[in-house]
Amino acid sequence: MAVERGDVEHVATLARLAFTEEELVAFTSEMNGILALFEELREVDTDGVEPVFRVLRRRNVFRGDEPGEMLPPDEALANAPDRHEDTFRVPAVLPND
């Protein structure tokens, strides 16, 4: 099954990526090429097969309820593009009306 331009636009919205018109067209055909590769998996009979999400067979890994090492705020925020005191500044979260 082929993806269409509209599907690509929808996925781009979910992924918060912006594409130009040209990129969208090119990407739609590219994506179809790769999905064709993925379609090969249809050949594999996986009835009754459990998926393996994690290869490590380990369970019950916990930490204690004590504070660990903490970064001083200045270090934690040192890479922030826009900072105010100990917070990150972003365009308004609530619609401004």
């Binding site: 993806v3 599907d7 690509v8 996925v11 781009a12 979910l14 992924a15 990526l17 990407f27 590219e30 994506m31 790769i34 999905l35 993925f38 998996l41 594999v44 996986t46 097969v49 459990e50 998926p51 393996v52 999400f53 290869v55």
Partner: peptide
């Protein structure tokens, strides 16, 4: 490209067909 493909593979309606299927094939390969 990878983010787009990955987002698509997890999105509503495609999870079983792509992501889950791939994880099952992973079991077989293992």
């Amino acid at each position: 490209r990878r983010i787009m493909l990955g987002t698509y593979a997890l999105s509503a309606g495609y999870y079983d067909q792509y992501y889950l299927k791939a994880q099952k094939v992973r079991t077989l390969l293992a």
